[in-house]
Amino acid sequence: MYGAGMAKGLLVTMKNFVKPDRMFTVQYPDRKVSPTELAKMSGVGVFTFMRKNPKTAFKAMTGQMTVPARLKQHPRFRGEEFTWYEQRCTGCASCAKYCPLGIIRIVTSPSGEQVQEGQKYHLDVFDIDIGRCMFCGLCVEACPYDALHMGSGFEEGKYRRKDLVVTVDRLKSQPKHPSTWFRPQIQGKEGYHPHGEKDVTWQEAGRHEQPSRKHQEEKWAKR
C-alpha cells in the first residue's frame, strides 16, 4: 500500500512524543524539577511537601524551580585539569618529553632529599598550558611515579589565555580528585568517584608504594 511507510514514520514519532522516556537532553548547570521530584528529594510525600512549602511547590509547578545538576560522568573521564602530587614527583620531566605538543614546562632545582627511587628535586615551575592541551593523557601515561593524573573537571573557561596555564601553585593547592584514567590503583578503590568529597592522598595515588629491593632490581638492574 502506497503511503503506509509515511504512516509508519508518523507512528514512530508519535511513540516518541507520548513516551519521552528516552529523552536525552542533559540540563546543565542546573535542571528544572517538578514538585514530585522535589518531594522525593526531601523524602516526604508530594502532598505533605506541598502543604509544608507551598511557595516552593508553586514555583516548581510553574516550572521555575531549579536544582544544581552535575553531569553524569565516568570516573575515567579525562577532564580539563590535572591532579599532581608534589610528594610523588621527582621532576624527571618524562611528562614534558612525552607531551606531543610540548606544553609542559618544568624547572627544577635539586633539593637533596632521597624519596623513593629517584633523586628528589624541588619543582620551581610546573606549567601546563591547557589552552593548547588536547587532553590526550600521554603525559599521565608517561609519568613513571604516578605523580601526574588527569582531573575530572571541565569548567576551565577563562577570559585570558594566560589564565589557562595551570601553574605549580594551583596544582599544589587544588583538591586532589584525580580521574581513574590509566590509574588502576585508584580505579580499584571501593566506590571511588572523582566527584566525591574525599581526596586521594599521595600514598593512595601511587602504584608502587614501597618498592622492594627485588622489584627495583627487576626493574632497573636488568636494563
Binding site: N16, F17, P20, M23, F24, T25, Q27, G63, Q64
Partner: peptide
Amino acid sequence: KFQSRLGPNRWGP
C-alpha cells in the same frame, strides 16, 4: 518532544 529532546525551557515558566 517529537525529537526526544526538551526544547527551550530556560526563560520563564
